[in-house]
């Protein structure tokens, strides 16, 4: 039911957002978010049935650029400041576990 977020939902959302919390923190964030979402109920006062949504404000016609590759010299700097890189690659922890079955 919109407007009544549950602690379990916040737990699930935290997983989706890749954030971990202690139970205490989770409870605090749950309270904050419940409070804020309760304010959103105010929008139910409006009749929005025939209103079209504005996803992006554009007061001008977006320009079309030629689709041409541009030479960019910054890739060495990008790799230099990466948390972990080797050669021309970013290094990350193992993505697939050994015992995991690939289907």
């Amino acid at each position: 039911m919109p407007g009544h977020v549950s602690l379990e939902e916040v737990r699930k959302i935290a997983q989706l957002a890749k954030l971990s919390f202690s139970e205490e923190e989770l409870t605090r964030f749950f309270q904050d978010i419940s409070d804020i979402i309760a304010h959103f109920e105010k929008l139910n006062e409006l009749d929005l049935e025939d209103v079209s949504p504005t996803s992006h404000i554009s007061w001008s016609q977006p320009p079309m650029n030629p689709d041409e590759p541009v030479d960019w010299q910054g890739s060495d700097l990008v790799l230099k400041h990466a948390p972990c890189a080797a050669g021309r690659y970013f290094i990350v922890p193992k993505v697939v576990e050994k015992e995991e079955k690939l289907s």
Binding site: P2, V5, E9, V10, I13, A14, L16, A17, L19, F29, I33, I36, I37, F40, L43, L46, L48, V51, S52, P53, T54, S55, I57
Partner: peptide, 25 residues
């Protein structure tokens, strides 16, 4: 991030994000 993830999550998109965009109009 939690608030935004919630507003965009399946089942709540119409109740929140879509409504937000309509009010913007």
């Amino acid at each position: 991030i939690l608030l935004g993830t919630y507003s965009l999550s399946s089942g709540y998109y119409d109740a929140y994000y879509l409504k937000g965009m309509k009010v913007r109009t």
